[in-house]
């Protein structure tokens, strides 16, 4: 048994394609981006080696830390919203009537591209013609907020579509995980007189714990490098109020022609994400599982 399951040739054969592709197309560019971070380079003229200066500047760059803080907030909210998705998946995966139809409907927004989602939410948040403020005015709210224009609100306003955009993704994963639990276990618990909530808390959730851990990592990592809707809906504004690390990096590298500094920010983003991931894995690790 063990001999077959540790056949080196097969391990190599099965792992090599993934490792090769990721090594060449992801790890090498990452190293290069860390290297560009050591340069004073506008992406056009010749590079000039300046050592760690970009990284030093970044560590003292208030705008960078502010955008990092925004990214952290997004990660926090994304991770918390997983609870909601898990509840939805638990309901959909239980044998209620119409679950099949509901599940399909719930996943629809996930199919839309970011372009469509951004346009939709721009319309939702429009201060004068938007859906949200129309509803608020209907209910007698005077001076409803300027969602994307108010620097105190813009960041949180933009979190909602981002979190909503990924709802389908996580519900789909949880659903598949829950359906993977052998039905016989649940039936046995029912016969023992356990309530649906008890079954969910004591059996289903522990059984899919590995999947939940993975989704926590996915949502946090995805949030820390998030870019799409922020860029389209507010461009990081007003005046940086909704800037996140990836949009700040993009602005520096592609709009301000400071490619060296932008690369340094991109590399720091990676380091931060890496540290956060390691912390999450340590926090969620249990004895019996393999340490990833």
């Amino acid at each position: 048994m063990n001999k077959i399951m540790s056949n080196k040739w097969i391990i190599f054969l099965y792992t090599f394609p993934a490792l090769f592709l990721i090594g060449v197309l992801i790890v090498v560019p990452l190293i290069l981006s860390g290297y560009f971070g050591l340069m004073d380079w506008d992406g056009i003229s010749a590079m000039e080696f300046i050592g760690l200066e970009n990284y030093m500047v970044a560590l003292q760059d208030a705008k960078f830390w502010e955008s990092a803080f925004h990214s952290f907030l997004l990660a926090l909210f994304s991770a918390l919203s997983l609870i909601l998705y898990l509840i939805v998946a638990l309901i959909l995966a239980s044998k209620i009537k119409g679950a099949n139809l509901l599940r399909k409907i719930y996943l629809i927004p996930m199919l839309l591209s970011s372009v469509a989602i951004a346009q939709l939410w721009i319309k939702v948040y429009n201060p004068t013609n938007g859906m949200l403020n129309s509803v608020l005015i209907f209910f007698g709210v005077e001076n409803p907020p300027n969602w994307l224009a108010d620097p105190d609100i813009a960041l949180y306003a933009i979190f909602i579509p981002i979190i909503w955009q990924y709802a389908g993704f996580y519900i789909l994963i949880y659903y598949a995980a829950l359906k993977n639990i052998p039905q016989s276990l649940i039936e046995a618990a029912k016969i023992d007189g356990a309530s649906p909530v008890q079954i969910a808390m004591k059996m289903k959730i522990p059984l899919i714990m590995n999947v939940i851990k993975v989704t926590i990592v996915l949502s946090v990592v995805g949030s820390l490098k998030y870019f799409d809707l922020i860029y389209v809906m507010t461009g990081g504004g007003p005046n940086g109020a909704s800037e996140v690390m990836a949009s700040y990096m993009y602005k520096l590298a592609f709009e301000s022609y400071d490619f060296g500094y932008g690369s340094a920010i991109g590399f720091l983003l990676l380091i931060i994400t890496l540290i956060v991931t390691i912390i999450i894995r340590k926090l969620t690790a249990t004895k019996e599982e393999i340490q990833y």
Binding site: N2, M5, S6, N7, K8, I10, I11, T15, A18, L19, I22, G23, L25, I26, V27, V28, P29, L30, L32, S33, F36, G43, V217, L218, V221, G222, L224, K225, F227, M245, A246, M249, Y250, A253, F254, F259, S263, G266, F267, L269, L270, T273, L274, T277, I290, Q291, Y292
Partner: peptide
């Protein structure tokens, strides 16, 4: 399967999750 470097390989794959695409574009 049982082998020494499985967690290392997984680590490398996970790093792949973390790359912002605009960092990768030019390289």
């Amino acid at each position: 399967m049982h082998w020494k470097f499985s967690s290392l390989v997984l680590g490398i794959i996970m790093i792949g999750l973390m790359i912002p695409i605009h960092s990768a574009l030019i390289p």
